[in-house]
């Protein structure tokens, strides 16, 4: 089973966000796990990222209103974590770990290979919107370095050949 692509809502749709009944009930459920609404901020943001693909300013405002926080406060939290997308992401976000274990086990090689095959490096995306590369810190999977996280899934013990197979599979997965 391969990783599902991200469907990023377009910015127009997220200009003003109103949570539908499904979102509302999930948020209400999340809130029951925490003593104060503010404590539910991260899980609610994850929920939103799953739903909309990224956290647009309109989403931050809706979350802020729902949890009784200021939009600036929510923005502070969203931008603190590199895992939250504040712009529409590509369908597959390749988070390449560049920390020590991965670095010595070939992260550099993976990045070079990605550059050769996709023509992009960390912080960039392919023009067709299929791939995006982010250089990240330790993913906590050093035992199976080098590691690349694609959307929510880990791909471990990679080498250029395995990476090629993975990219082929992802590109084919289309919608």
């Amino acid at each position: 089973m391969s990783t599902a692509p991200i469907h990023a809502a377009n910015p127009e749709e997220l200009r003003e966000v109103r949570f539908d009944a499904a979102m509302e009930s999930q948020i209400a459920e999340l809130l029951t796990h925490y003593p104060i609404p503010r404590a539910a901020l991260l899980p609610v943001l994850w929920l939103c990222q799953k739903r909309y693909g990224w956290i647009a300013p309109g989403v931050m405002e809706a979350v802020a209103a729902r949890l009784g926080l200021s939009p600036a406060y929510v923005q502070g939290v969203v931008t603190f974590y590199t895992m939250f997308h504040t712009t529409p992401p590509a369908r597959f976000v390749l988070q390449v770990c560049t920390t020590l274990s991965c670095a010595v086990c070939g992260a550099g090689e993976l990045l070079a290979h990605l550059r050769k095959r996709l023509g992009i490096g960390p912080g960039e995306r392919t023009p067709d919107g299929t791939f995006q590369i982010v250089g990240v810190q330790c993913l906590g999977a050093c035992g199976s370095a080098p590691v690349v996280q694609v959307n929510d899934d880990y791909y471990e013990n990679l080498d250029p050949a395995k990476l090629d197979a993975l990219l082929d599979e992802l590109a084919a997965a289309k919608e």
Binding site: P57, M60, E61, L69, S70, P71, A72, Y73, V74, Q75, G76, T79, F80
Partner: peptide, 20 residues
């Protein structure tokens, strides 16, 4: 009590900003 200011980003890169 307006909570208008925040840090955007983190660590060395954090800067003061208002929402959007």
């Amino acid at each position: 009590e307006t909570s208008q200011l925040t840090y955007v980003s983190r660590g060395n890169h954090a800067y003061i900003d208002t929402f959007d």
